[in-house]
Every structure is written in C-alpha cells, then in structure tokens.
C-alpha cells in the first residue's frame, strides 16, 4: 500500500470519518486541491462541493459539503465541515426540488436586506453545488 495520510472529517455533531487515505481532493474557495502525504501545512476555506477520497487512482468515497474549513499539517488533513452528506445518499429529485425552492425564495424576496440576500444567494449556491454533485455521480 502506498503512503497514506490521516483524513478526518468532522461536523459539529459527530465525527464522520477518521481513516488513513492515499489522497483527498478538497473543494477550496480558490479551486479544488489534492492533498497527498507530506503536504505543506495549509488552512483553507471550502466552498460547497465534493470531497473525493482516492485510493490509487480510484475514487472510493465522495462526500458533499456545504462549506467549512480544511487544515492540513504533518499529522494529516482535518476538515471541519458543514452539512456533510454522502453523495451516494443524495436523491436527485429532492436535490432538484431544493434548488428550485431556493431560487424561488431568492426571486420572491422583496427588497431583502444585504444579509438576507447574501443568505439566500448562499442557499442557492449550495443547492446548485449539490445538484452538480449528483449529476457528476451519474
């Protein structure tokens, strides 16, 4: 087996994953980046997107996150995630519906305050990313 790093995925309520992996690809705000063992220490914001866990060149797991933070150091890679879900468990119809609802909420909001608009736009972005995640799986 090739060299591995410890990958940990936690959300506020529980630990979702803690295991040695060969590589993870994370959706950073400035583009996806892969983390291999001995990666340089890094802290990054995550955008809504998919975390892919690799074994060799094969993807073993795909996990959707709505956002969060990633920290890479010599001990491994830690992701503090929000709204994490296994991509396999996402249901296409429900995701499409959620996106439609979010878009409608944004369109319906009359003169939203700046924060309100930011919040709604964020909801749409998350829903869209989730749909992309489902589409990419198929």
């Amino acid at each position: 087996m090739a060299a591995t790093l410890t990958f940990e995925l936690v959300d506020p309520e529980r630990v979702l994953a803690s295991e040695p992996v060969e590589m993870v690809v994370l959706p950073g705000v400035e583009g996806d980046f892969g983390v291999l063992p001995d990666h340089a220490p890094l802290v990054s914001l995550l955008r809504p997107g998919v975390i892919a866990v690799y074994e060799g060149t094969k993807v073993t797991r795909r996990i959707f996150v709505a956002g969060g933070f990633a920290e890479v150091n010599e001990q491994g890679c830690v992701v503090l995630a929000e709204g994490a879900q296994m991509v396999d468990e996402l249901d296409r119809a429900a995701v499409e519906q959620a996106l439609k609802d979010a878009e409608e909420d944004l369109a319906d909001a009359k003169e939203p305050s700046e924060e309100e608009r930011a919040r709604l736009e964020r909801a749409v972005a998350i829903a869209r990313a989730r749909l992309e995640a489902v589409t990419a799986k198929e």
């Binding site: 950073g28 400035e30 220490p41 890094l42 802290v43 990054s44 914001l45 150091n73």
Partner: peptide, 10 residues
C-alpha cells in the same frame, strides 16, 4: 501555515 484565501477572510 499557508492560508487560502488569506488569514482575514478565513
């Protein structure tokens, strides 16, 4: 650490 995008925003 390297910070991406930068410390303030994170």
């Amino acid at each position: 650490y390297e910070f991406e995008p930068d410390e303030e925003r994170i």
